[in-house]
């Protein structure tokens, strides 16, 4: 529809009708990561054309997430209670804590079924160029946990991503945690399943050679 297209352009510019509900909805979608202006318009008009129930459910879910989801007191993962399900599970090994960057990393490690310890979510990584220093992520919370008088943590596994910032964060954590006498380990690095040696970078191949094991 030609008129709709003009209307869309008119609404996204917001020059004449900035308080229009559609403009606000388009701009709200546009403010989300990975959503460009065209996608924002499509989503907004999809909502308009959809049944009322869908819009209501979406709105209620957004409000519920913002109002009810909190950070776990211990591991800083997302939860609806004071403690998350992993921290509440008494069968987990509380002597080992795996430190990850984001809540989704917990899900990824849980999917392996190979880890039975607890987690700590940093909610980021030290990235000075992006203005993120150690004080901006949940490092202090991790230290408090390790240093707590009741703590029985014997090993901290640093599972930050194998990127430059992830390595910097891992080294930083290693330095401050080892001062407390706790063992710090790092996830192994090497070639991923199905990869090709020909295309492997120097660092990955070098580390795969360093970490080779007897068969």
């Amino acid at each position: 529809m030609g008129t709709e297209s003009e209307s869309e352009r008119y609404l996204i510019s917001g020059s004449r009708e900035t308080k229009s509900p559609i403009t606000r909805l388009v701009n709200s979608f546009h403010s989300l990561p990975g959503i460009g202006p065209r996608s924002a318009q499509r989503l907004a008009y999809h909502i308009l054309r959809s049944p009322d129930a869908l819009a209501r459910e979406l709105a209620e879910s957004l409000i519920e997430v913002k109002e009810n989801i909190v950070l776990c007191r211990d591991c800083q993962n997302l939860t609806v209670d004071v403690l998350c399900l992993v921290c509440m599970d008494s069968s987990r090994d509380s002597t080992v804590v795996c430190v990850v960057e984001e809540p989704l990393d917990v899900t990824a490690i849980e999917r392996t079924g190979d880890f039975t310890g607890l987690y700590h979510v940093l909610h980021g990584v030290i990235s000075p160029r992006m203005g993120i220093g150690p004080e901006d992520i949940k490092i202090q919370e991790l230290l408090s946990r390790v240093h707590a008088p009741t703590s029985n943590i014997a090993e901290v596994i640093v599972a930050t991503n194998p990127s430059t910032e992830g390595e910097a964060t891992a080294m930083y954590l290693s330095r401050i945690i080892q001062d407390a006498g706790t063992k710090v380990t790092r996830l192994a690095r090497g070639l991923s399943t199905g990869s090709d040696l020909e295309y492997a970078d120097i660092d990955t191949l070098g580390r795969a050679l360093q970490n080779r094991h007897v068969m």
Binding site: P128, R129, T164, E167, A168, M171, D201, I202
Partner: peptide, 19 residues
Amino acid sequence: TIEMFREARSDLQSLTIFL
């Protein structure tokens, strides 16, 4: 990669100056 500068990433002090 032409050069990865692994030595500059090998310890925290070098890495922070590198960054």
